[in-house]
C-alpha cells in the first residue's frame, strides 16, 4: 500500500513545490497567514520533508494546513524555489481524499465551500452569482450591495450586463450545451468524485457530532456550523 508521502508525490504541485528547504524562514516572514494565524509555512515544509508518515497524518488532520490564504507570496521569495502554497494545496487535496479534513474545524469548512462555490459552478457555470451573495451572509458588503441585491435586474440592465440572458456579455446565462460539457469535464477529471467525497465524509462527521445535515442546500445546522463557527483558538491574539 502506498504511503502518504508517496501519495503527495503523485501531485505535480507537490513535486514542483518541494525542493530542498534550508529553513531560512523567508516564506514565514512574507506570509500574511503567519501574521494572523498560528501558522508557520516554514514548519509545514520541514514536516513534509521528514517523510514521516505519522507527521504527515497529523498534518492532514490539523487546523494548520487550512490557514494559508493562497496569495503565493512565498513563491516569489523562496531562494530555493520551494512553494509552501503549492505544498499546502497537495496536503489539502489528500486530506479531503482520505477523509481527514473533518477532524479540524477549519477543514470541515470545505463542506461550506462545496455547498456554495461548488454548487454555483455546477448549476450556473460561475463561481459566484449575485443571487447567492445574500446580504444576511455578507454583512461586510454594506448597504450599496444590499440595494443592488434588491434591484439586481435593474442595476445590471442599467450597466449593460446581459444578466441571465442568452448570448455574450456579463452574467449571461451559460447555455445548456456548455453546461453539459462542463459537467462532462467534472465527471472525467475527478471533480465530481471530490465533491462526493466532501459530502460523504461531511455526512459522517455531522452524524458523529449530531448536527442536522440535509442532502442539498445551506439551510441546515451542519452548513451553519461549518460556515460560521470559530472556536477562537486559531489566531495569535
Amino acid at each position: 500500500m502506498k504511503g502518504l508521502f508517496d501519495k503527495l508525490m503523485e501531485d505535480v504541485r507537490f513535486e514542483e513545490g518541494l525542493k530542498a528547504c534550508m529553513n531560512c524562514g523567508v516564506c514565514t516572514a512574507i506570509c500574511p497567514a503567519a501574521e494572523f494565524y498560528n501558522y508557520d509555512p516554514r514548519q509545514i515544509v520541514t514536516r513534509v520533508h521528514s517523510r514521516d508518515e505519522e507527521t504527515i497524518l497529523d498534518l492532514l488532520k490539523s487546523e494548520t494546513i487550512w490557514y494559508c490564504g493562497q496569495c503565493m507570496s512565498c513563491k516569489t521569495r523562496c531562494p530555493r524555489g520551494n512553494v509552501p502554497g503549492l505544498i499546502i494545496m497537495a496536503l489539502r487535496k489528500l486530506s479531503q481524499e482520505e477523509g481527514h479534513f473533518t477532524e479540524s474545524e477549519k477543514g470541515r469548512q470545505q463542506f461550506a465551500i462545496k455547498r456554495t462555490v461548488g454548487e454555483n459552478i455546477l448549476q450556473y457555470g460561475y463561481c459566484v452569482i449575485p443571487e447567492n451573495i445574500n446580504p444576511d451572509l455578507h454583512r461586510e458588503q454594506g448597504p450599496v450591495w444590499e440595494w443592488i441585491f434588491k434591484n439586481i435586474g435593474d442595476v445590471m440592465d442599467r450597466l449593460g450586463a446581459n444578466y441571465k440572458k442568452e448570448g455574450a456579455g456579463a452574467l449571461r446565462k451559460i447555455s445548456d450545451e456548455s453546461m453539459k460539457e462542463l459537467h462532462s469535464i467534472f465527471e472525467v477529471t475527478g471533480g465530481k468524485q471530490l465533491f462526493n467525497k466532501i459530502e460523504e465524509f461531511s455526512l459522517q462527521k455531522a452524524r458523529e457530532l449530531n448536527w442536522e445535515y440535509k442532502e442539498k442546500g445551506i439551510d441546515n445546522d451542519y452548513f451553519r456550523h461549518t460556515y460560521t463557527d470559530n472556536n477562537g483558538t486559531h489566531t495569535k491574539t
Partner: peptide, 27 residues
C-alpha cells in the same frame, strides 16, 4: 471576440481546494 460559450475557469474553487488540478486544467 466575446464568446458566450466559455464558463468560469473554476479558479475560486481551485484555490479554495474543492476543484482538483486536473479538473481546472481541463476546463
Amino acid at each position: 471576440f466575446d464568446d458566450p460559450r466559455h464558463t468560469t475557469c473554476t479558479g475560486i474553487g481551485y484555490h479554495a481546494d474543492i476543484i482538483p488540478f486536473e479538473t481546472i486544467m481541463t476546463v
